[in-house]
Design a protein around this nucleic acid. Structure first.
Length: 426
RNA sequence: GCGGGCGUCGCCAAGUGGUUAAGGCAGCGGCUUGUGGCGCCGCUAUUCGGGGGUUCGAAUCCCCUCGCUCGCCCCA
């Protein structure tokens, strides 16, 4: 008995499923290309320290969800749980000042040790976009619009955009002082999880889903009231610009992202179709991160889209594979090499060509071609090998006689004409 | 990390203590020894996620374990 299995929370993807992945990725890449956003690739494995400093020690991601181990050189390594910290590190390390304004994207696997469920795996994939060095409200708007449009391009309906502002460092520490006092006096009315967060990560308490806690929080001080005039105006401007673009949003004053580095704008795009893992896209501004990590003072904003959740939401039309254009039926020693040679020649065209390698009877090979819904077939057997010409035939599912032609192995012009007239029309 | 549901062939499943574990799809072989669809015929689980136990007897009952799934938590 084979007891080798994939690790929990990881999956194997097979061709049938990957059609949808490939189609989705193709649309994503096209949108990013058109918006002139450039790709960056950073290592999947990084020093553990990077995430502790970048994401924040108090976060759940860092404190209990990382895949961390010692390598053979006794260095503590971690499989990346998200992409932003690595991008920031790479930019700082390679000299950010020579290119202070950048629009970047990345895509790839991320790892978090969590209990798997629908839309949540231990190895999952994210597309992330980061605008580095941009501090204008317009960059916030472009980031949000980009995320919104990408999801729209994939035909995903019924999405909700939630926005909030977290203010700058100053606003937040003013708020936290007052909030902490309030938490201490109201500690007993909070749920246990929230009580545990009071000193570790008080902001997250705002995002609690506990009904009782939610109710009590209604009387808590609001971050919004601690915003400086500048921060406040920034937020109003963001809303105004979103309205101009007719991007519908809902304000959620309790929206706090789970990673420590966010400032000002925070947003999430959710879908009811995903069950409890409703967030398909999350992002926000992180003006202090790069400086905190030892780089120059560089504002930035970004988002990440969860690809597994995106695949769940994307339409069925993206699951349809392209059918074979030409299926080459062949048998016999000479015929088989002629067939192989012809298949190579056919790769010069935008055609999906499959060479039958089974050596099975012609009947079997025909059945296979039929099963694959091949648009046409080429037959090469001993007769064809002797005569120096092959038969190419249009081939529809009904099994009726179809237009066919004998073409010499040397007559490339005739072959090309036949392809142009019969296969490349639409 | 905590709670609920589930686990029979590659996929979908019937079977809830009693001789050989239905059926469908897919796959393979044949009818057609070199020509498709459709159709017809045949083959494909010594075994019920894994391990232990109860019993004359277990896929069916009990325990443990693994996995999936839903919710909590967290997040994308």
């Amino acid at each position: 008995m084979n007891n080798l299995k994939n690790l929990r929370g990881t999956v194997d993807l097979f061709p049938d499923q990957l059609i949808k992945w490939q189609n989705v990725e193709k649309i994503l890449l096209e949108q990013l290309f058109r918006a002139s956003i450039k790709e960056i690739r950073t290592p999947i494995l990084e020093m553990t320290e990077l995430f502790i400093r970048g994401i924040g020690e108090g976060t759940d991601v860092v404190s209990k969800e990382m895949y961390t181990f010692l390598d053979r050189g006794e260095r503590s390594c971690t499989l990346r749980p998200e992409g932003t910290a690595s991008v920031a590190r790479a930019l700082i390390q390679n000299g950010i000042s020579s290119n202070p304004l950048q629009k970047l994207w990345y895509m790839g696997p991320m790892f978090r040790y969590e209990r798997p469920q629908a839309g949540r795996q231990r190895q999952f994939h994210q597309l992330g976009v980061e605008f580095i060095g941009h501090d204008s409200v317009r960059s916030d708007v472009e980031i949000i619009a980009l995320a919104w449009d990408i999801l729209g391009k994939l035909g995903i309906k019924e999405l909700n955009l939630e926005i909030n502002t977290l203010g700058d460092n100053n606003d937040r520490s003013n708020f936290q002082k007052s909030f902490l006092k309030w938490l201490e006096t109201n500690k007993d009315s909070l749920d246990l999880d929230s009580q545990n967060r009071i000193y570790k990560n008080p902001l997250r308490i705002l995002d609690s889903k506990n009904i009782q806690t939610k109710k009590v929080l209604e009387n808590a001080p609001r971050l919004f009231n601690f915003l400086s005039e500048k921060s406040h105006n920034r937020y109003l401007d963001l809303k105004r610009q979103l309205e101009v673009l007719k991007i519908p949003y809902v304000e959620n004053f309790n929206l706090v992202r789970g990673l420590d580095y966010y400032t000002h704008t925070a947003f999430e795009i959710t879908s009811g179709a995903l069950g409890s893992q409703a967030t398909v896209c999350g992002g926000g501004r992180y003006d202090d991160l790069i400086k905190q990590m030892g780089g120059p003072n560089t504002p930035a904003i970004g988002f990440a889209i969860g690809l597994e959740r995106l695949i769940l939401l994307a339409g069925k039309e993206l699951e349809i594979p392209r059918n074979t254009d030409i299926y080459i039926i062949n048998q016999g020693l000479i015929a088989e090499s002629l067939a192989m040679d012809l298949s190579r020649k056919l790769r010069n065209y935008d055609l999906l060509v499959e060479l039958d390698l089974s050596g099975a009877s012609f009947s079997k090979q025909f059945k296979k071609a039929n099963k694959l819904k091949s648009k046409s077939i080429i037959v090469i057997g001993e007769d064809e090998a002797v005569n120096g010409e092959f038969i190419i035939r249009l081939f529809d599912q009904s099994g009726n006689e179809n237009k066919e032609e004998a073409i010499s192995f040397e007559n490339d012009i005739k072959l090309e004409n036949w392809i142009n007239n019969n296969l490349l029309i639409n």
